[in-house]
């Protein structure tokens, strides 16, 4: 049994965001962090490794510096790393990215007991599309928004946490799960892990490595193969601060009603 975790290096939102002339992010020039939801996926995989001794492989598509992120995940306990990196892959949208990652996962090989894990969504694009698209392209059953999970034999029971309620779903391996922050609290690297991660295998898959896969076609990968065209990038206006009304039910309802009347909303 092995768990493959797809992770993404994203701009550190506390730093400066640089945008290319074509509207895509200039990832190479920004301070980066590991996408927070992906950390929950890694933690879930490592917890399962603690329990079952399974192998954990971390995979990312990105420029060569993303290798540093894979090393950090290996210092936390992941066994292997795969960097998917090539000029041909640059500028990919979610469709093209999932083509490439699906091909990379096929190359790693997905067997009956295996699980693919992703974060729910990345904080840079906020699309939540890549995980589900990979599952579709690999023909794997998928469960998104996993906030709790339990594995019994080849069945995983997941609690999906949605905005309007919960949903419990059982799924058989092999499958793909996308994880949310409620799932766990990610661990740190260990000092020993840091000094040993350099000896763990870290492979790079280039265009050459993956080009024979039917998913990899210059028309379906990279900027050219991306159906999404970025028209304009902008920073959304910040949401105003909320207000908490204190008091018992009737009191707060009256207060709320008078405030809404005052603002001519009702």
């Amino acid at each position: 049994m092995k768990i493959i975790v797809c992770v993404k290096q994203v701009p550190d939102t506390s730093g400066k965001v640089a945008v290319n002339p074509d509207g895509t992010l200039n990832r190479a020039s920004m301070q980066t962090i590991i996408n927070p939801d992906d950390m929950n996926a890694v933690e879930a995989a490592l917890k399962m490794k603690d329990e079952t001794g399974c192998r954990v492989i971390v995979v990312t598509m990105g420029p060569p510096p993303a290798m540093g992120m894979l090393r950090e995940l290996m210092a936390m306990g992941a066994d292997d790393g795969v960097l998917v990196s090539a000029r041909e892959f640059g500028g990919s949208d979610t469709y093209a990215t999932s083509q490439i990652l699906a091909a990379a996962l096929k190359k790693i090989g997905i067997e009956k007991d295996d699980i693919v894990m992703c974060g729910r969504q990345a904080i840079d694009g906020d699309t939540a599309q890549v995980g589900p698209q990979i599952a579709e392209k690999l023909g794997l059953p998928q469960v998104t928004y996993v906030g709790e999970m339990k594995k019994t034999g080849g069945t995983i029971t997941c609690k999906r946490i949605l905005e309007d309620g919960y949903m419990t779903i059982s799924v058989k391996t092999p499958c793909l799960l996308t994880c949310i922050k409620e799932l766990n609290a990610p661990r740190y690297m260990t000092v020993r892990g840091i000094f040993e991660c350099g000896q763990k295998p870290l492979e790079t898959y280039t265009y050459e490595t993956l080009k024979d896969d039917p998913l990899i076609d210059l028309a379906t990968i990279g900027l050219k193969g991306s159906p999404t065209n970025i028209f304009k990038s902008f920073t959304p206006p910040a949401k105003g601060a909320g207000m908490m009304l204190e008091g018992d039910d009737k009191d707060t309802c009256n207060k709320l009603a008078s405030m809404l009347i005052e603002k001519h909303i009702i």
Binding site: Y188, M189, T190, V191, R192, G193, I194, F195, E196
Partner: peptide
Amino acid sequence: HYGLMGVPYPTEYGGSGGDVLT
């Protein structure tokens, strides 16, 4: 647990295998 108490000691004794600078 995270190895802060054995940074500069070799792994053969259960240390982190780090150095004095670390």
